[in-house]
Design a protein around this nucleic acid. Structure first.
Length: 407
DNA sequence: TCTGGGGTCCTAGGACCC
DNA sequence: TCTGGGGTCCTAGGACCC
């Protein structure tokens, strides 16, 4: 059966949301109408472009590039700091509006949703009517704009929403693939990144159409599973479902670019504990246990190293994750200046259904009590109220993240 | 003042087992 | 007295997305 899928994508999400919030606070300048970007804190060495206004885009500014470069391209550029609390607020507002049309919604990212409208169209209305209504309502009720892509699967709907921006609705039905999608450069295809591009070009593939017309076998030979996937995408093939059920995360991580390169293991360990605390706090909130701990560093030369290890039994204990993380850090740290430090936990399992291991001792009851007591304080007074690491004791220069609420 | 942070998925090699 | 081989698990690294 042919499905009816919408992809709703907020235009310049972070910048638009900041613009709307500022206007609401009484500011008169709409930062969408000036050369502006949302950027990270340059003093904390997080100075990259997170979002740009269309005017900034006209100067050649791209997401992810250093603000330093962006300023060279556009000396009059205005830089604003992002606020993730605000972003979650608008993301949730949009989601709730969309829920009025179907309950089959996949939140693909903070600013993108897939809607499965199959069987959800009200009498006398077609999918375009619904898209028009959503587009209009979002603009009127929230003050920001969205692009909407319409098709019979997620891939095509997503490609469609990416066509002309902002505030536009596009269809990309199967029969429109040759005229609307094949002419585009292959780099525009979802999942074709900067690493694959040169390889594809060497094969004589410049457009999505070039890729579609290759033999599938040739792509599989050159790229394996990935080759099969992008070949299918170029032909508009995607049978994946709109995943509307809230999924538990498969891994939880926290990393930080340090304000300057660290060369002492003691200082790194202090930060490591703060990272572990946040990760395990989130673990416990999700009622998950981790089987694997991973520690990652990035050197001053931008080389990354990581070590991971399986635990004897799954845990959400700050202490146990910290012990393992310290071990892993000591394995990778060879005295090279460290720019970034990160901790992740993986292979997460539900708290209830885990096996009780023979190795698991029961004398960690004390640790459990400490964890849950601290969690309660965090719930009540905010995450920053108490940490074992105590961010004040760490480096005064470090600003740890606030925990954004997904809801 | 050059280069964020949070994810998912895949690959490849080695260990280990049968 | 010459190197088998398939399957699974573990680990490191990398690609891609927003």
């Amino acid at each position: 059966m042919k499905r009816e899928i919408l992809h709703v994508d907020v235009n310049n999400a972070f910048l638009s949301w900041s613009a709307v919030e500022r206007l609401k606070q009484g500011e008169t300048v709409d930062i969408r109408r000036i050369p502006a970007i949302i950027g990270g804190d340059e003093e904390q060495r997080k100075g990259v472009v997170l979002a740009k206004s269309n005017i900034a885009k006209q100067f050649g500014i791209v997401t992810g590039e250093p603000i330093f470069f962006a300023r060279k391209k556009c000396p009059k550029l205005q830089v604003f700091q992002g606020d993730f609390k605000v972003y979650y607020k608008y993301s949730n507002a949009l989601y709730h509006l969309l829920l009025e049309y179907t309950d089959k919604i996949e939140r693909f990212s903070i600013d993108e949703c897939f809607l499965d409208m199959t069987g959800y169209l009200p009498k006398g209305k077609n999918i375009m009517d619904i898209a028009l209504e959503i587009n209009k309502r979002v603009k009127e009720e929230f003050g920001f704009t969205v692009n909407i892509g319409i098709s019979e699967n997620k891939l095509l709907a997503k490609m469609a929403s990416d066509f002309e921006k902002p505030d536009k609705i596009h269809t990309l039905w199967k029969e429109e693939i040759p005229s609307k999608m094949w002419k585009l450069p292959v780099s525009e295809l979802f999942m074709v990144g900067k690493r694959s591009l040169p390889k594809l070009q060497k094969m004589g593939i410049k457009t999505i159409g070039d890729l579609a017309q290759k033999e599938e076998k040739e792509l599989i030979h050159a790229f394996g599973k990935y080759g099969k996937m992008i070949w299918e995408y170029s032909n508009g093939i995607d049978n994946s479902e709109v995943n509307y059920e809230e999924e538990k995360p498969k891994g939880i991580g926290n990393s930080i670019t340090l304000p300057y390169d660290y060369t002492s293991i003691e200082k790194l360990e202090e930060v490591l504990l703060a990272l572990v605390e946040q990760v395990t706090y989130r673990l416990r909130k999700e009622e998950l246990l981790a089987n694997v701990v991973n520690v990652q560093i990035k050197t001053n030369e931008f080389k990354t190293f990581s070590h991971q290890r399986k635990l004897d039994f799954p845990t959400d204990s700050t202490k146990l994750v910290q012990d393992m993380a310290k071990k892993l850090l000591s394995e990778i740290y060879k005295g090279i200046p460290v720019r970034l430090l990160g901790v992740r936990v993986d292979q997460l399992v539900e708290k209830e259904q885990r096996q009780i291991s023979l190795f698991e001792n029961t004398d960690n009851e004390k640790q459990k009590k400490i964890d849950s007591t601290l969690d309660k304080i965090k719930e009540k007074y905010g995450y920053e109220s108490i940490t074992r690491a105590g961010k004040m004791q760490i480096d005064k220069n470090i600003k740890l993240k606030e925990l954004g609420k997904k809801e």
